[in-house]
Amino acid sequence: MTADTPRRRTRPNVVGHASLLALSLLSVFPIYWMIATSVRPTNELLTSSLVPSALTWEHYRYMWDAIPMDSMLVTTFLMSVAITVTQLLTSLLAAYAFARWSFPGGRILFGLFALTWLVPFQVTMIPNYVLLSNLRWLDTLWALVVPQTASAFAILLLYQSVNAFPRDLLDAARIDGANSWSTLWRVLVPNLRAPLATLAILLFISSWNEYFWPLLVTRDIERSVVQIGLQMFLTSEGNLWGPMMAGATVASLPILVLYIVLQRQVVESFMKSGLR
């Protein structure tokens, strides 16, 4: 809404505040509790006091000794970056092609892309698994990344932005003698920074949080991602709540930091993706 639109009324909205406050508490409390538990002294773990009486790193130390956290963090980070970068590239190229040219079968191709959205992961998991195992890629970064280098979601999101881009500018670039490739990089990409950043944020978060696929293709905890490590830790030492919460904190820390730094962009990214 523009600033000059008069607000309809300004009376304090008590119901609104109350319900949002309740919802905010529900949203934040578990995260607070996770962090609070992770730094509490062990003898205080089983109380329900809201604030820890003293801070300790013992749970973090224990957790770090119990699971190969360093290597898992590195793997997760590499996987997330690789997926983000490759998906940005493939979806940019595909979106550009679909939006720029109409070629024979283009509509059918586009439809085929869009339809993959409807194929649940669980339905394709076995053939993918068999393929990866034939390639001897299980337990490698390749297995984590390669099957996810393109997605209908990314293509559709970028397609809208590319399609909304003024055609005249693209034509002008061509008249000036730029070929399609340099038009893409010199004209389109600099102007699509916002949607590209949106997509990058979404992709990074979702690949960091990825659980199903790594669960399938990695057997060796040393080569797996933090989410899997956390789950294995839960199965093996499920009642050590301090170290457990320390692990959970570490597994979500990068995302939470990203969120705190880029809060508005993150929220807007997700909203755009949902609003289409």
Binding site: S24, M34, N209, L234, G247, S252
Partner: peptide, 30 residues
């Protein structure tokens, strides 16, 4: 919450959005 003050709205937004980005495994464990 349709007509809350924008500043409040931004604060609530930031808070209620957090669960969405938390990794599912972390959510389960917590």
């Amino acid at each position: 919450t349709e007509d809350l003050h924008p500043r409040w709205r931004a604060t609530y937004r930031a808070l209620i959005f957090i669960p969405m980005i938390v990794p599912p495994v972390v959510a389960s464990v917590v």
